[in-house]
């Protein structure tokens, strides 16, 4: 009974050691299969996200500006 258990444990250790390698291999295979964006598409997306991010940020910062007089008032 003892032997097979030991063997499976060994197997598990082997698997544990192999797991990162396997993971990297699968990952890089996946990356190779991936469709990469062309420059035009990329610029479009960066611009869209950039505009969205900055406009939301500016609106948020406008609210944050209210804090300056409030802090002045209460400190």
């Amino acid at each position: 009974m003892a032997k097979p258990v030991e063997k499976s444990e060994n197997n598990q250790i082997d698997k544990l050691a192999e797991a990162p390698l396997e993971f990297v291999k699968e990952g890089s295979q996946f990356l190779n299969k991936c469709k990469k964006p062309d420059t035009k598409e990329y610029v479009k997306i960066v611009r869209a996200v950039g505009i969205g991010f900055v406009s939301v940020g500016v609106i948020g910062y406008a609210i944050k500006l209210i804090h300056i007089p409030i802090r002045y008032l209460i400190v």
Binding site: F53, V54, V56, G57, V58, G60, Y61, I63, K64
Partner: peptide
């Protein structure tokens, strides 16, 4: 997301 965007603006243009 909104707070992170705000912090970015505040760290750059604050």
């Amino acid at each position: 997301t909104v707070v992170i965007a705000t912090n970015l603006v505040s760290d750059t243009l604050g």
